[in-house]
Computed example of a mutant assay.
Amino acid sequence: MLPVAIFLLVILAGLVGYAMRLSLLANMGTTQDIQGARAYLAARAGIEWAAYKVLSPGSTTMEVCPTPPSPFVINGFNIVLTCSRVVPKDKGDTQDIGIYTITSRASVGSAGAQDYIEREIKVTLSRCLFGSEECN
């Protein structure tokens, strides 16, 4: 009877260990999902900051790409912004059209670590000026 009891205890201990491992992995997955969503929102906040600077309501000049503060941190996420601008003229050579490509990368943790999270968003914006006024 003793060997059967030991066998059952070993089997039950193995099942409990397996269940605990599954629970831990599920918890880690949930945490990474939440952090991923937070990283996306931080990257989006970086894009919105840059878009506001570029489109500059009320401005009558074509804005240059903004320089973010250093370090640029939103809710614990490090934000890296890159921006490029081209200003072609329209076919009639009367309107300046600023085309901005902005990339925002939000990350937390050390690259290669288990808790490292990174999200990147890229947008293209344009602004049209006719002389010193916004185009319609």
Rank of each mutant, 00 (worst) to 15 (best):
A106D: 00
T82K: 00
A50S: 06
L22W: 13
M20F: 13
A37N: 14
N78T: 14
A26S: 15
A111H: 08
N78Y: 03
L9G: 14
S59A: 15
F77Q: 01
E63W: 03
L41Q: 12
L24G: 08
D90G: 03
T61N: 07
D33R: 10
L12S: 15
F72V: 01
T60W: 03
Y52G: 13
N78A: 12
T60S: 14
A51E: 10
G29I: 06
I34V: 15
Q32C: 06
V64R: 08
D93G: 07
A43F: 02
L12G: 14
T61V: 11
V54A: 07
I99F: 09
V64L: 10
Y100H: 09
Y100K: 11
V54K: 01
V80I: 11
N75T: 06
W49C: 01
D93W: 05
V10I: 10
T94A: 14
S59W: 11
R85S: 10
L12V: 15
S110T: 15
Q95I: 12
I79A: 01
W49N: 01
I79E: 01
I99E: 08
N75Y: 07
R21F: 15
R21P: 06
S104V: 02
G58D: 08
L15I: 12
P69W: 01
T101M: 07
G46T: 01
A50N: 02
S70Q: 13
D93N: 13
I11R: 11
L55K: 04
R105K: 07
R21N: 14
A51C: 10
A45Y: 00
N27E: 13
Y100M: 07
G98R: 02
A39M: 02
S59L: 11
C83W: 03
G14N: 06
K91F: 15
R38N: 04
L24F: 10
G58S: 11
E63H: 06
S104G: 05
G46K: 03
R105V: 07
P68Q: 07
I74V: 13
G98P: 00
K53P: 03
T30K: 14
G58N: 07
I102T: 00
T94G: 09
R38D: 00
D96C: 00
M20C: 12
